[in-house]
């Protein structure tokens, strides 16, 4: 082998290396794109079906294709129109959709707001005060949380039924009753979550505010809550969405069309074999998704923003 050849051989790999580096953009990263693509498809597939069904003139699911043969707004119109539907056990007017929507907003919004408030208060106490029963209290919250609320449906029904005899406004078939039941359901997890976050807010901030002349209430509203904005936003969002989706308890407590929430109301469109109304159902679901999406867009700012930065030496 001549010196020149040897040199050439030595030089070769480096050329190949350089070429590979140049192409690394796609050659090395194609699988990332693939994973992302699969993720997007999985996420959007059900949405695509719902959107398709909402704009499809056909009422059945099995016969329809993903891309509707003809686009129509009939499904949306029928939600707000006065057209009568007759299903197996009930005749109802679609005009109730607006009530359902309103009820859902009241229940989900109210639950979200009150959940945040209640669990913030509880978490603040657990995080900042030392009192007898503190540990037991926290463990109890966790323990209760281990049983799904579903198990308690019968008990909840009976409790609400009996309370209604005394306090009409939180009896069966009322929205406040539903809100109260929901509030109890997620208290434990949310309190724990928030307590964990409060623990990361330096207690010197509380102390500093107290020395500055703040009452405990002022410390809570003026210092701790603004700093906890990210976790408050997360909890508000989670509880809003899960309440919006909740079906079982709502269907047990609510009895009349005017009081139904969206899941209970919309369920009637599809709960009978051979007479399902998938079109209006999909349209109704699509509209119901809007407030949740808006809320998410609005709260995102707080979730992303790390507000505690700069409180203490970083």
């Amino acid at each position: 082998m001549s010196t020149a050849e040897r040199q050439a051989e030595l030089a070769l790999p480096s050329v190949a290396e350089r070429r590979r580096k140049k192409r690394s953009g796609f050659a090395d990263n194609w699988w990332r794109h693939l994973v992302a693509l699969i993720g997007v498809v999985i996420a959007l597939f059900p949405v695509a079906y719902i959107v398709s069904a909402a704009f499809n003139g056909d009422n059945s699911l099995s016969g329809s294709s993903l891309i509707p043969r003809q686009l129509t707004l009939d499904n949306f119109r029928s939600l707000f129109g006065t057209q009568r539907h007759t299903t197996g056990h009930a005749t109802f007017q679609n005009a109730h959709y607006l009530s359902w929507f309103g009820n859902s907003m009241i229940v989900a919004g109210g639950t979200a707001l009150l959940t945040v408030l209640l669990s913030a208060l509880a978490a603040y106490a657990f995080s900042r005060f030392r009192f007898r029963g503190r540990r037991m209290g926290m463990l109890t919250l966790l323990l209760i949380q281990m049983f799904p609320q579903l198990l308690a449906v019968v008990a909840i029904y009976l409790i609400v039924l009996n309370t209604g005899d005394v306090f009409r406004f939180i009896g069966l078939n009322t929205l406040p009753a539903l809100i109260i039941v929901y509030l109890g359901g997620a208290m434990g997890v949310n309190t724990w979550l928030m307590k964990g976050f409060f623990d990361t807010i330096p207690s010197e901030l509380d102390e500093s505010a107290r020395v500055d002349g703040a009452t405990p209430a002022q410390v809570f509203w003026g210092v701790v809550l603004p700093l906890a904005a990210p976790v408050l936003a997360v909890i508000a969002l989670i509880s809003f969405i899960s309440t919006l989706n909740e079906f079982v308890i709502a269907s047990v407590i609510l009895e009349t069309q005017q009081k139904f929430t969206l899941p209970v109301g919309l369920w009637q469109f599809i709960d009978q074999k051979y007479s399902e109304h998938w079109g209006p159902f999909a349209a109704g679901v699509l509209i119901a998704a809007i407030p949740a999406a808006l809320l998410f867009a609005f709260l995102q700012r707080y979730i992303v923003e790390g507000l505690t930065q700069g409180a203490v030496k970083g």
Binding site: E207, R210, V223, L307, Q309, A311
Partner: peptide, 20 residues
């Protein structure tokens, strides 16, 4: 007396500034 009633001011080791 509460801290408020004592009319004092305190500087903390980690400053304890209100970040918001």
């Amino acid at each position: 007396l509460t801290p408020k009633e004592r009319d004092i001011a305190m500087v903390f080791q980690n400053y304890a500034l209100y970040p918001h």
